[in-house]
Write a protein that binds this DNA or RNA. Structure first.
Lengths: 337, 337
DNA sequence: CTTGGCACTCGGGAACACAGAGTGCTAGAC
DNA sequence: GTCTAGCACTCTGTGTTCCCGAGTGCCAAG
């Protein structure tokens, strides 16, 4: 049904349309790519491609434009992920090296990705659920208040101020801290609830109300941050592009954590580092935009996802290359720290 | 030069133009506001106002539009800050109550302000410089790494991983922690450098290299965060509005911390809670936009600034009311926690 | 000083024509 | 059978013209 030449025509249409943003006609196409056939032949192929739903024309007697289905075929079979140039690789390294903490890593990453792709970049903070406890700290603020600080192996720090039911001396706090750390150090966050379940019973009676208060806040912290924070950058890149959906809708979606989360999608469990590409209407949450995303994190332990969001008419090979490269680099950085 | 009626005309022009977004003519103006004079009289006044530079006409034979100077006069002398409705006040309270930590307070505040004003809201994190040290924590991660956690009275937490020059036992770390806290607890952040200056000399010789490493990181932390983090929300509200400057420029400015910082401006030292209004070209960093900002923080201790950014054509009384109200509420919240 | 009248100006929309790009179709060439 | 060339057709986008109306500035009268 679709012979090699027709596929070549489709590829040429996608490439031309992406670079020019104008419907591409048979004549220009036959000229620019040396297809060695006449425009008339190209027209016949185009008619076939349109019949199959890979391209469409905005109006009668205008050039052709790829459909979502056309982009899909292009991404799946007609293109290769384009690796970054040496200069770009160097830029990534110099940009990411020197990040002082997790916040900084994420901020730098999202900006880097936005700049590299000239799209909107989205980065999810490493999730707590797969992290482990590195340390639990109780800091006395006054005799009835302590600050709980939870430090994970990803460098993430969560803190909460806790109002205690009674005045507690610093030495007792120190003891509780030791007990907590003995119990939790190095354990996965998801196992924390069961690990602390019987903790009050193993303590002197007098400590139980205080510990119970602390534990309830600790558990709450884990639950609240279960779906993780997401940041974006490069909104300015939306200014030029045009979406079938309104610019306003896109901006609103970007500020909605929940929508962003869904846009990034799930990491496939078998091949976590695979690139996910959702094109236009394939994306149920924000149609008219495409998302290129992937998981990142050290080694097999995929922590979170990052990606970019842009118009359906985007340079997929380049974008995919950038997303993949950035994901790898930031994974390295995280593993090292 | 400008009698009362001319001022009334200017006020009417600003109000009409803000609500309709169309140049306002003499006839409609004489009708809608009961000025009790004829359109011809209004025209004479308009001519005078234009002569003085308060209004201008986009083209010959179009209505008049306020200039930056006109808005300035309106804000300074012709309008009163509009207090929020009871419903809005309740909305603020329910929205801000329940914030779990400083991050949460800031995030909620910026969203609230964006929603309330239908503009872009900008909130600066409370600055460290005027804060005081509540606690310094050293958490051993391994025998050659510790995490430094700095907690301030504003609830802010800074953390850094420190590579030690030699292996150090936990008990020694604990001792250093005690020394640090004894030295710094409750002190202003700006005084930290001098307070720790002679600290190594007061310690046993063997501890000095380690302490020096820790202190250098501590000082670095203070310096790096000297100019503070800024967040924004409500970019979607830009979609409708039109600026004389391009939408792209505004979005770029929003992602540049430095530019944002300048936009928010300095808190005047004598009246820190005063509203700052910068209109159009008065704003050197992003012309064509207006900024309404104010300081916030508990009591006399102004911590940081917040405000909104929007088109010059904005409803100043309402916006100013919202900014002032939110600043007060968030100050309360911060003081209470 | 205010008002009504009046001529003038200019922007924006409607109607219209036209050039150009692109198409589909058909008949002929390889 | 597949490709090619030619041709008539169909659009969109642009430029032109025209006209309406809102709004103005000015002037003379109240």
């Amino acid at each position: 049904m679709l012979d090699d030449r027709k596929l070549a025509v489709l590829r040429a249409i996608v490439e031309d349309y992406v670079s020019t943003n104008e419907p591409v006609g048979s004549k220009a196409l036959a000229e620019r790519h040396n297809l060695k056939v006449s425009p008339a032949t190209v027209r016949n192929d185009m008619a076939a491609l349109e019949e199959e739903g890979y391209i469409t024309q905005p109006h009668t007697s205008a050039g052709r434009v790829p459909t979502d289905k056309g982009y899909r075929l292009f991404v799946d079979r007609l293109s290769q992920v384009k690796p970054l140039s040496a200069a770009e690789r160097r830029a990534i390294e110099t940009f990411l090296v020197g990040a002082v903490d997790l916040d900084d890593v994420v901020t730098r990453t999202v900006r880097l990705l936005a700049q590299l792709t000239r799209q909107v970049a989205v980065v999810q903070y490493p999730t707590l659920t797969r992290s482990t406890v590195r340390h639990v700290e109780l800091v006395p603020l006054s005799d009835r208040r302590v600050m709980l600080v939870l430090i994970t192996n990803t460098g993430r720090v969560e803190q909460r101020v806790i109002e205690l039911p009674e005045a507690v001396e610093d030495t007792r706090i120190a003891h509780m801290r030791a007990v907590l750390n003995a119990c939790l150090d190095g354990c996965g966050l998801s196992t924390v609830p069961e690990l602390v379940a019987d903790l009050p019973e193993r303590l002197p009676l007098e400590d139980r109300p205080v510990v119970a208060t602390i534990l309830s806040v600790l558990l709450e912290t884990l639950v609240e941050r279960h779906d993780e924070k997401i940041v974006f950058a490069g909104a300015a890149n939306l200014a030029g592009a045009d979406f079938s959906v309104g610019l306003r809708d896109v901006l609103e979606a970007l500020e909605e954590q929940v929508v962003l989360m869904r846009l990034l999608g799930e990491t496939s469990t078998d091949t976590p580092s695979a690139l996910t590409v959702r094109i236009g209407s394939e994306n149920p949450y924000l149609r008219g935009t495409s998302v290129v995303a992937t998981g990142y994190g050290s080694g097999d332990n995929q922590l979170a996802r990052l990606g970019v969001l842009g118009p359906t008419r985007m340079d997929y090979p380049v974008t995919m290359g950038a997303v993949r490269a950035v994901a790898r680099y930031v994974s390295q950085i995280l593993a090292a720290s």
